[in-house]
Design a protein around this nucleic acid. Structure first.
Lengths: 341, 341
DNA sequence: TTGTAAGCGTTATCAC
DNA sequence: GTGATAACGCTTACAA
């Protein structure tokens, strides 16, 4: 490994000067600077990042904590984060914690000990210990931003899609199509996104004076199978349901499978709408109406907020809400529209 | 920040002793050790990783370079790598380089300068500069393993699915079903996986004495649209094709869309088989027969190989081939089988 | 069993 | 403009 001392010796200058040149701090004669640069290049010098970090307290690393990179909603925001980080000469360390609070806390500690310059965390459930841990980070003045639903007690920058509004759009769409008996398939009960989306469902139903029956509400797990189960159960009970709003696409796909297995037609017999707009949604038969959220964008914005903090800005714990938009496809077309499309 | 000096002072011992305790090196009286541990805990000491790395030349970081985390074939191996790394108290830095050789080389340099203890690289195309760069790493004795197709000139550990065999299985399956005129939709022409899969196609055709026509070979881009285009073209030319083998599922899905648009039935009129077994494959209508590869596993194995090197094993540039397996679904059922299933 | 002290490769504060 | 030199926080011979 070649150090600034090696270069200094060869250039007949002090290591300090070499450092100054390499960091373009000025205050060096152009001649000397060029000599140093030339030698550094010849010797293929590359700075020791560890040593530099030790001195400067900057690692050019940011940490990212998500539940699971295998969940198809994460790769896009991750890529958004990578892109802005890499452009700033930063690398990103990614941990999948399965939304397990203990793992999350452990990872937070590990990463802050590793000296990351900032942290982006996706909080899926509201856990008190986790919230405490994050508050500690804030106090230690490590830049942090939350990606995903905001936790009410957490005073940190947060970027998330407006889940309530998205759900409202989806359900309103069903209502406008003339449906009244609209079932809803939720995620795990502590899940923040699910809660927000459920709130949107209720608001839309209220606004359109559609009564909500307890028996239309099904608590799922975000997984394909649970959407399938939900639809099977809902149909078996013969509640006369006209449409189903699933709080994510994966469950909606499962539900569609179940509905078709029962010999019913979508959307003629039952309309289905999801949430997320995963790639699959456009390709299923029928294609799935859903709520799209700019996922890459949300990662990008989160990273930009983080870098603002890293570069010294005070973070007021602002909430950046991303506008969702409704994507109408075949799973909710009016019957009369079907032949036309 | 609390350092070992703070603890040393409070415990009336030397920093060296604190270090010994914290690293459980033994040679410390149990009493002293316990006192140190207690104080460290009370003061919420956590070691400065930068300083430690500077001394030990170990960062507990590994780097991972892939084309694009948004490509659905990567999250699973990534997760496999994360899991084995995290269990060993390592974190993983992930870069998406879009398979751009310049970015790849830049990232390799950045990561090795950052002091990662090892590198896992997914090489999708065979670029001479990249190969050179990787050889350099090997010479500098940085542990490296390749994930994905092996580059012939590269003497490094490599784990990849046996693409040729997988393709062979897929095409053999079609042949056994009685098809002879089997078209193939390839990826970009320099892509290594695509080449290997094409080789499997040819071998199977040869083995079953099925002639191959130049006009059945279509060069795609791995993207949905290119599968669609391919099928449209193949059908328009009326070559009497009976089946299509697409070297990845995404193109196969596109092809199925096109076939159905042309009013043809799958598999009655045309059979389709893909490669990858992405989640979508099971859910499409009809569901897609394809070649599955244990993706999570492959990441896991790659990481395990890397850690063997990190822990001191010599790497002989071994090639670990992962067995693919054929998944038969509706897109290739014999007509007579369809009603039964 | 414990302490002293010399680095690891930088950066940054002084002087000159 | 440039050069000593003292950190940064840790590990590890070598002494004691």
């Amino acid at each position: 490994m070649v150090t600034i001392y090696d270069i200094a010796k060869e250039a007949n200058v002090s290591p300090a000067t070499v450092s100054r040149v390499l960091n373009r701090q000025g205050n060096v004669r152009t001649e000397t600077a060029q000599k140093v640069l030339r030698i550094a290049k010849a010797k293929k010098y590359s700075p020791n990042v560890m040593a530099r970090s030790l001195r400067t307290k900057r690692s050019n690393l940011i940490g990212l904590i998500i539940p699971d990179i295998e969940n198809p909603i994460y790769p896009a925001p991750v890529r958004g984060i990578q892109d802005v980080a890499n452009r700033k000469d930063y690398s990103v360390i990614i941990h999948s914690t399965d939304g397990d609070e203990r793992k999350e806390i452990e990872t937070i500690r590990r990463l802050s000990a590793a000296g990351v310059d900032g942290l982006i965390i996706n909080i899926s459930e509201s856990c008190t210990l986790l919230v405490e841990e994050i508050s500690k980070l804030r106090k230690s003045s490590l830049p942090v931003v939350a990606l995903g639903p905001r936790h009410p007690e957490l005073e940190i920058d947060c970027v998330s899609v407006d889940n309530e509004k998205g759900a409202y759009l989806a359900v309103e769409h069903l209502l406008k199509l003339g449906h009244r008996k609209i079932a809803v398939v939720l995620g795990p009960k502590d899940n923040l996104s699910s809660k927000e989306r459920f709130a949107g469902y209720k608001k839309a139903m209220d606004d359109y004076c559609a009564p909500i029956a307890e028996e239309w509400i099904y608590e799922g797990s975000f997984k394909l199978g649970s959407g399938y189960q939900a639809a099977k159960k809902l149909l078996a009970e013969k509640k006369g349901i006209e449409a189903i709003f699933c709080v994510n696409d994966v469950m909606a796909l499962g539900a569609m499978n179940a509905i078709q297995e029962e010999g019913l037609k979508i959307p003629e017999d039952i309309a289905v709408v999801g949430f997320d707009d995963i790639e699959l949604a456009a390709l299923s038969k029928p294609s799935l109406s859903t709520v799209a959220q700019p996922k890459y964008e949300s990662g990008k914005i989160a990273a930009e907020l983080l870098f603002k903090q890293i570069e010294g800005a005070q973070s007021p714990g602002k909430y950046y809400s991303i506008e969702p938009n409704l994507v109408v496809r075949q799973s909710t077309l009016k019957v009369t529209q079907i032949n036309t499309s």
